[in-house]
Each structure stands twice: as structure tokens, then as C-alpha cells.
């Protein structure tokens, strides 16, 4: 008898709740733009947040409503933009080169050192705020891996005191670049390999005092370049990625060996 009553009560309650659910779902139905679902399917789906929205779902909604451009996803790049453009029935817009992270520092444990012994929170942003300069170099990688902790793809790792990007894994979301308290990480076009691996803006002798691998601003690279694609400003060389043809002449001449070589020659 008890079993029967229990079963009946449960059954009645479930029918009532079911009816309530059906009613509310009909009554409060929110219309979803069917394109939003389709756009969402085109997006990579790693929810990195590099577009500036809360994740792929949020971006899909914004694209469907027309608030964000079809090429808003920096990770997907041109193929994804083209697919979304098809869904939305618009032009894909200017093709954008996919960018990947590049660490402008070569200061590994052999070439530069830390001052004293930092024992605080193991985090670059905290170290940068500790009031003292942890590294000898005022500009170099702190090596506590804040970039590592924000990377959704485990594409950046601190190896021997300096952050190193795994080019195969990097999706170009740029989160590491936003996190680095010293602004060392630059997002550069994927196809361009020649870049200066230093951020020190001090004069040559001052750089040499703190790091044996730093750019000394000697301008030898500038004189080598036939395309006017490398310049020295504030004692630091910087490559103009649009003009660079990846000939690698500056790489050979650089006395500090601080410019990364073009593709096909290692690294």
C-alpha cells in the first residue's frame, strides 16, 4: 500500500512539474538567430577570449547580430572568416595574416642573472610590482611564467629562465602578450620569422653589463637591409614585418646574434 501511494504521489508531482516546464518553455521562448548556431559551429571553440568577448558562444551571438565583424576571431584567421562570411552572406573582408606570439627576449640563465633571491609569489606580475627589479636587465623576461599560466593551448613555456613559444601550438590569441608585465611578447605575422629577440632600450655598454645576448643598437643590421625593413630606435632594433622579405642578411651580420633566422634555417 505504501509503495502504491508513494508511486502515485511521485507520478502526480512529475506530471505537474512536466506540464509546468512545457508551459514555461513555450511562454518564455527566446528566439535564437539560427545563424548564431551556424556561426558558432565555424568558430574554433577553445573559448580563449582573445576576440574580447566572453567566449566563442558570445562572439557567435555578436557576429550574428552584426555587432562584430566576421573576421573577429584572431585564432581562426582567414579560413574561419571565410566560412562565417558565407553563413552571414557578406564579404570576408580584407584577409588578415594570422599572428603568433614572439618573445622579444633571449635572456636565459646563462647570459643574464637575477638580482638577489626573489621569494615572493611565483608570478611575473607580482614580481614586477614588488618594488624591486628582480632581473639584472630592466626589460627582460622575469621567467615566472605568467604567460604560461594564461595560455589556453600550453604553447608558451619558461625554459631556462626565459619564455619560449611553441610555434606549432600557438593559436595567436594574444593572451600572453596582454599578461606580460614587461610587454615582451609581440604578435607577429606567422610567415615572418626574422625578428629581434631583445627589448632592452639602454645604450650598448649598459646592455652588455647586464646581458651578453642583448641588442646593443649598433645599426649593422640597418646597413645590411636592402628593403629598409629594420630600424634602430631607442638603442633597439625592430623589424618592419610588412617590408621584410626574409632574406636573413641582418641575421648573419648581427654581432649579438639576437635576430632570429628565417624559416628553413632552424629555430
Amino acid at each position: 500500500m505504501i509503495i502504491l501511494i508513494t508511486t502515485l504521489v511521485i507520478a502526480i508531482v512529475s506530471i505537474l512539474v512536466g506540464a509546468g516546464l512545457v508551459f514555461t518553455s513555450k511562454k518564455f521562448y527566446v528566439e535564437v538567430d539560427p545563424r548564431q548556431t551556424l556561426v558558432r559551429e565555424c568558430l574554433p571553440g577553445n573559448n580563449c577570449g582573445a576576440c574580447g568577448y566572453a567566449g566563442c558562444d558570445a562572439l557567435a551571438g555578436e557576429i550574428a547580430m552584426g555587432n562584430a565583424p566576421v573576421n573577429a576571431c584572431p585564432v581562426g584567421g582567414n579560413p574561419v572568416a571565410a566560412k562565417i562570411a558565407e553563413v552571414m552572406g557578406t564579404e570576408a573582408g580584407e584577409p588578415v595574416d594570422r599572428k603568433i606570439a614572439f618573445v622579444r627576449c633571449k635572456g636565459s640563465c646563462e647570459v643574464t642573472h637575477n638580482q638577489g633571491n626573489y621569494v615572493g609569489l611565483h608570478d611575473c606580475r607580482s614580481a614586477a610590482l614588488s618594488g624591486v627589479n628582480v632581473t639584472d636587465c630592466d626589460y627582460g623576461c622575469l621567467g615566472f611564467g605568467s604567460c604560461e599560466s594564461v595560455c589556453p593551448e600550453q604553447a608558451i613555456k619558461v625554459v631556462n629562465g626565459v619564455a619560449v613559444v611553441n610555434r606549432m601550438r600557438c593559436v595567436g590569441c594574444g593572451l600572453c602578450a596582454k599578461t606580460c608585465p614587461r610587454g615582451l611578447i609581440e604578435m607577429i605575422p606567422e610567415k615572418k620569422r626574422v625578428a629581434v629577440q631583445c627589448s632592452n632600450k639602454d645604450r650598448g655598454p649598459d646592455v652588455k653589463k647586464v646581458c651578453s645576448a642583448g641588442c646593443i643598437g649598433c645599426t649593422l643590421c640597418v646597413r645590411q637591409c636592402e628593403n629598409d625593413a629594420i630600424h634602430v630606435a631607442e638603442n633597439l632594433a625592430h623589424v618592419d614585418y610588412d617590408a621584410c622579405i626574409q632574406c636573413g642578411k641582418c641575421v648573419e651580420k648581427c654581432p649579438a646574434k639576437v635576430i632570429t633566422p628565417p624559416a628553413g634555417t632552424g629555430a
Binding site: 615572493g120 609569489l121 606580475r125 607580482s126 610590482l129 614588488s130
Partner: peptide, 13 residues
């Protein structure tokens, strides 16, 4: 726990 250091960072962020 290094509480103050955490707050310093959070404040700046």
C-alpha cells in the same frame, strides 16, 4: 600565505 602581495597585484590589475 603571501596575502599582501596578491592584493597588490589584484589592485593594480
Amino acid at each position: 600565505r603571501p596575502l599582501m602581495q596578491e592584493f597588490k597585484r589584484a589592485k593594480s590589475e
